[in-house]
Amino acid sequence: MAEVLVLVDHVEGEVRKSTFELLTAARALGEPSAVVVGAPGTAQGLSSALAANGAEKIYVAETDRTDFLSPQVDVLAALVESASPVAVLINASADGKEIAGRLAVRTDSAWLNDVVAVSANGRVGATHSVFGGAYIAQAEAKTEHPVVTVRAGAIDVEAVAGAGTEERVEVPAAAGRGATVQSTEPITGGDRPELTEASVVVSGGRGVGSADDFSIIEGLADSLGAAVGASRAAVDSGFYPHQFQVGQTGKTVSPQLYIALGISGAIQHRAGMQTSKTIIAVNKDAEAPIFEIADFGVVGDLFQVAPQLKEEIAKRKG
């Protein structure tokens, strides 16, 4: 069976969960081969987790190169040439998309971006969830070895062990001028789960009224182990940082439970959360469009309802 290359996303010596999702997705297309690109000594700590999650082969490409993202592109381009994979799967993160786009250009491959499922039927096919889940589109690659970036959290991990045979590969010398990394600082997101990966999201909108009062949103979120989100109106008003914005110009989330507090539910916001499994809304305005998509809505004051809900949750937790 033909190989499927999976670029391993790793941070501080750990394989990211999104990589396990890619290894699961890869099995629908062929035999998963994990590709580790990093500083010398990186692969050693990652191999067992990769094998346990289905990597039949692990390509180890270790290098001292400091040019940004180019080693990944160069290594994958060389492997596309030598291994003729069915497809190359990469996490659809900011870095992943950049690597994917550059690889597609270099290898004249189709790029199927931000997909939620992959399939093989002669050609490599992919499912896209477009405009915040308002549309479902099917696409297929017209070239060999398409590059596919997969949305984190879209695929449920099924851990099936693979052989995990390591194979060292040469990292080519830098092909052109690159950008050099001067320094890096990881983002400290605190104890809350990452917004796009969280199974519960509690969001606040303009109705929260101030940055200080967002503590009500945070308090309720923490009682549920949830991530905190914000509508564009709340972010534009300076109540909460932009990185937490849910909507057309922010993040797209699809949690098991989404609680919208003081959010009217403009299209701009709904596009970022309407594929949530269960939606709860609290808003003073009985006509707010958020109620059109809420499974359960309360017309009322969030400053009354949210603390009471938090108290009820605490009670049930005992």
Binding site: G133, A141, T143, P146, E292, D295, F296, G297, V298, V299
Partner: peptide
């Protein structure tokens, strides 16, 4: 010249409203 093609695109049926109560 496109290297991939969209084979189908369908709007997802809109989510319908559930229960709405007044506090």
């Amino acid at each position: 010249g496109a290297l991939s093609s969209v084979t189908s695109a369908q709007p997802k049926p809109p989510k319908s409203a559930g229960e709405k109560v007044t506090d």
